[in-house]
Nucleic acid binder design. Structure first.
Lengths: 120, 120
DNA sequence: GGAAGTACATACATAAATGTTAGTATGAGA
DNA sequence: TCTCATACTAACATTTATGTATGTACTTCC
């Protein structure tokens, strides 16, 4: 059924397949896309406006990676001006919660961090 | 006191300073180092052995970034064969908890994710 | 005596991430 | 008619991340 991996999964192990998922989720744009989709379904261009600084290319690549991991659902309506909607899968909602907890923590403690930066 | 940033902090905004901290924490090695230090104080070489795949160069750079954000504490004992200890600061403990929640989630749901990858 | 371990820095080289520009097919609005 | 918006892809250029090799100063173990 599965290849010869070590179990249970451990991200600290270099060859653990969880590393790939970790990379997708913690990539610069991966984090932000998950966060943006936490607010609900969004179209490609709306997502692009929501995530400050993403290029179309990066957004599309990031979405494909997350879709490939089963975290994001892509629904394309075959209409003439393209209409595609992105949302979180059930699995994605769980991941987004943890990602959101991290970014939320950073936002809440940014002042303290900046104070530490000056002192150090 | 502070420059002309927008408040409150918002990672979805391209110019928000929280983006820098996010980058450090979600960098490939940043995540893993925080995780490794969750288990307690470690010396440089022990840390290197713990985090599968890091090179000395990356480990040292990562530690410096995290130290600069006030998340990691570095204590150097001025002895002849160098002896340096790394640990999480109070601030770092909070960050590590969120990072750990994310990596833990990934490890716990890796099977589901892999199933989705095959199907998709 | 020679090898190995410690905690790095520095220089160089390469791999990976990201950005920029242009292009596609078509409909709506000025 | 001309431009804009949509959701992309492909090609190319650049920046950033990461790896590799080497050196250091001194000590301990074989």
């Amino acid at each position: 059924m599965n290849a010869g991996f070590q179990f249970p999964p451990n991200v600290l192990a270099a060859e653990c397949p969880s590393r790939t998922v970790l990379k997708h989720l913690t990539s610069q744009w991966g984090v932000l896309v998950m966060l943006a989709l936490q607010g609900g379904t969004l179209r490609f261009s709306a997502l692009r406006r929501r995530v400050g600084g993403v290029s179309e290319r990066m957004l599309s690549q990031t979405l494909q990676a997350l879709e490939g991991d089963g975290l994001v659902l892509r629904i394309a309506h075959p209409v003439v001006p393209p209409h595609v909607e992105y949302s979180l899968t059930v699995l994605g909602v769980g991941a987004a919660e943890r990602v959101g907890a991290l970014t939320g923590w950073i936002e809440d403690h940014l002042a303290e961090i900046q104070a530490a930066q000056v002192t150090a």
